[in-house]
Every structure is written in C-alpha cells, then in structure tokens.
C-alpha cells in the first residue's frame, strides 16, 4: 500500500486551499488561507484516493491552535493498517 508522504499531503492542501508554501510545522488554524472546510475537502479527497487508509474526521477532533499539519499527518499514519 502506497502511503502519501507529508510532502504529498502538504501539496494537496495547498491546491485545495490556495495557501502557498504551507509550513507543516506551523499551527494549521493560524494559516490565513486555510479553514476547517478546506481540511474537510482535503480529507474527502484523501479518502477517495486512499480507500484502504481508514482516516476519518476524528483526525480533526480536538484540533486547536497548536495542531500542525505534521501532527495531523502523524494521526493519518497511525490509522494505516500494518
């Protein structure tokens, strides 16, 4: 199973949100061009492209002003079947 890299995920979110040069270590909700609907749109596209990875909206539970794209990506990796 091919698991998208953090770089892939960053690029996907840039395409969806229009945000440029997203730093995966910056708290995601502090990035001006990204809102929660962009994250849902990214998740839907991710689920469509990676049906074998059971990532769902729980990725974004308890998201606050400290959560980064890297930490979201770590949550995605935690869902990947071994």
């Amino acid at each position: 199973m091919a698991v998208p890299t953090l770089q892939d995920v960053t690029k996907q979110l840039e395409t969806i949100s229009g945000a440029e040069n997203i730093d995966p270590d910056v708290p995601i909700l502090t990035i001006d061009d990204i809102d929660s609907l962009d994250l849902m749109e990214w998740l839907y596209s991710f689920q469509e492209s990676n049906p074998e990875i059971p990532a769902d909206e729980s990725l974004f539970e308890e998201i606050d002003e400290t959560v980064t794209l890297r930490s979201i990506y770590d949550r995605v990796l935690a869902t990947v079947p071994s």
Partner: peptide, 10 residues
C-alpha cells in the same frame, strides 16, 4: 459543520 460537509459531499 465539518461532519455535515464531509458526509454531504460523500
């Protein structure tokens, strides 16, 4: 709202 968005689209 986030849940509605995701599941409405799906």
């Amino acid at each position: 709202g986030n849940e509605i968005y995701l599941h409405a689209v799906r």
